[in-house]
């Protein structure tokens, strides 16, 4: 067997992270970081994350809040001279960190994104009212009341323009075949779990 020179973490990212096989192609130009609307707020901007992956800094990358700053604006993808699908890699890194339980616990976008997924996978469609309330009230009842009061006028505006329906709380929209949809998602998750379990480094 020929020797493998690339470090384990790079190979782990290539095997288990969405579009991870692109990481090694980054040429460190920094256009992604300069193009990001939340650029100044990243602990480690994308090109730094790519270099850290290549340097084997597993914990520093996966425990970072950085990837959770991605607004999915796709500026970095549009501008990357080497055509790396950076947005997708950031989503992939964030998901992988969460899946391994390494993502920062109090990261707000992580919490919102998790609630978004749970909300949609229940009925097959997003219930905007329940999603919003579950996010506002995630830090307890009083925090939720405070948050709701802050957002009162926004909510009222939406209500009056008929773009928020209070009765959604009772159930609301959903797929007829939500059972079938859930079976599909369960199977997809199983296939992905098996693939990740297979990676030995």
């Amino acid at each position: 067997m020929s020797e493998q020179y690339r470090n384990n973490f790079l190979r782990e990212v290539e095997a288990n992270v969405e579009e991870g096989e692109w990481v090694k192609r980054c040429m460190q130009c920094g256009v992604c970081s300069g193009s990001c609307p939340l650029g100044p707020h990243w602990e480690h901007p994308p090109q730094e994350l790519f270099m850290m992956i290549r340097a084997g800094k597993r914990d520093e990358v996966l425990k970072s809040s950085s990837m959770w700053m991605c607004t999915s604006c796709y500026n970095c993808i549009a501008r990357c001279p080497r055509e790396l699908p950076i947005t997708h890699i950031m989503h992939g890194l964030a998901h992988y960190a969460e899946r391994l339980g390494l993502a920062p616990k109090n990261q707000q976008t992580n919490k919102f994104a998790q609630r978004f997924w749970n909300n949609l996978s229940k009925t097959g469609r997003v219930n905007e009212l329940k999603l919003t309330l579950s996010f506002y009230f995630m830090n307890g009842f009083m925090a939720g009341v405070k948050m709701s009061l802050n957002m009162q006028k926004v909510g009222l505006g939406m209500l009056l323009s008929k773009r928020l329906n209070p009765f959604e709380i009772l159930g609301g929209h959903g797929c007829k075949d939500s059972k079938g949809l859930q079976a599909i998602l369960k199977k997809a998750r199983e296939i992905e779990d098996a693939k990740i379990a297979k990676f030995q480094g």
């Binding site: 976008t109 997924w117 949609l120 992905e192």
Partner: peptide, 18 residues
């Protein structure tokens, strides 16, 4: 019977395949 696309924010809970 269309379903949600998971938008761009569903990635925390949903992996690539789901």
């Amino acid at each position: 019977d269309w379903n949600c696309c998971s938008a761009s924010i569903g990635y925390a809970g949903g992996g690539e395949l789901p």
